[in-house]
Amino acid sequence: MPGEQKGIQDLYFPNRSYRENTHFPSIMAAVENLDFEQAVSEFDKLIPSERKSYIIMSSVLKNFLEPRKINFNLLFQTGAELYKNIGELGFYFQAILDKNSADNEDVRKYADLLMQLSIAGVMKVQEESNGYPEKPINGMVWLDGACIDVWNDFLANYFDIIRDYKNYYNSRLIQSRIVFSIKRHYSYEIARSTYNMGLANSKIGEMETALKCYQAVVDDFQEILDQPLEYFAENMEAVHELYYLGEALEKYIDLEGHSDETLRNQYRKVKELENMIKAKMNI
């Protein structure tokens, strides 16, 4: 690994050197080898106070990892471990993007490959999700879906930068299908997905559908405004729901040109709660 990593570790762990914690090199080795199961296993051994710092550090470290050669013929091979292929191609795409402008031909090449693999992957996850969570699911199917979701967030941001709104929509649609296949029992994931589909539809000119998405978030999550501050301090999922409610309200009011005082009051209430939450959590 590049020499800069030691300095980054010292930056985020000033009181503990790299060698003093045996888990850090194991985690990074697992991530570099795309052995995510091992990475999670090692990550779970960290004490809670170390986990946030490690997440910050690992996001920085990714920028220093040299992309490895990929056998693209194997990426679409039947029976291959999808999450590894998605992760491998995703890291490669990000590494190429970090070193080139967004409109670089190589960047677009890997973005298109990642999109193709994601489309094949989401079909696989939908087929194998088995009615989850009401019915049991193979853990690898969940991991495949989660990996597709994460990397399509990167793809959506990339397509937004280059103003390819059709593929921005496609990436958000892939994420939405993943959420409703393996994450629909997490209400904040539903809020995120529905809000993002509103954005996606607005970018391709489907304003009526976008409004319906924003309205759905407002209808389903407005009751959270009746909760006391303590509820949010103890429930980070609720904090995420509050965020997407606020974003949906803002977009709905802007698109509709709404003078409805109820909606405007709800938006003001969201902002008040967010400020109080930040103050309480010292953010």
Rank of each mutant, 00 (worst) to 15 (best):
A39V: 00
G246E: 08
R51K: 15
Y169A: 01
Q266I: 01
E274I: 02
S53A: 14
H240N: 14
Y83W: 14
Y83T: 06
L11D: 08
V179D: 03
E4R: 11
E223H: 11
R68G: 09
Q266Y: 13
E237T: 10
M28P: 03
N138H: 12
N282W: 03
F13H: 01
R264P: 12
P133S: 05
K203A: 09
Q116T: 07
N104Q: 04
M276P: 05
G79V: 00
E256I: 06
I47G: 12
Q116M: 12
C213K: 15
I27Q: 01
S259H: 13
Q38F: 07
F93D: 00
L173N: 03
F93S: 09
M236C: 12
D164F: 03
R184H: 07
F221S: 02
A238Q: 10
E105Y: 07
Y188F: 14
M276N: 12
H240D: 14
P25F: 08
V218M: 02
D260M: 02
Y165F: 15
A156N: 00
K166I: 08
F159G: 05
E223A: 15
A156Q: 07
K269D: 08
F72I: 14
M140E: 09
N100K: 04
R51G: 03
E234A: 13
Q126Y: 14
N15I: 04
L255S: 13
Y169V: 02
R172I: 09
I47K: 06
Y186F: 10
S17H: 00
I283Q: 13
D112C: 01
K278S: 13
S101I: 08
T194Q: 00
L34D: 08
A279Y: 10
A279I: 02
I283F: 11
K166W: 07
Y188L: 05
R192K: 12
D164H: 05
A111Y: 01
I161H: 10
L229Q: 01
R163W: 12
K280D: 10
E208Q: 15
C147T: 14
L143W: 08
E42A: 02
L34H: 12
T194L: 10
E230F: 09
F93Q: 04
P228A: 02
I182G: 03
I161W: 03
F232W: 05
D103E: 10
H185T: 04
W151F: 14
G205N: 02
E223L: 06
I148F: 06
I162D: 03
Q77G: 00
A233E: 15
V122T: 11
Y214D: 02
S187G: 09
L255K: 04
E189L: 10
S58P: 05
F72V: 08
S26I: 01
G139I: 06
R177Q: 15
R68I: 13
E128I: 01
N201G: 04
F180T: 07
N196Y: 14
N265S: 14
T78G: 09
F180L: 09
D219N: 11
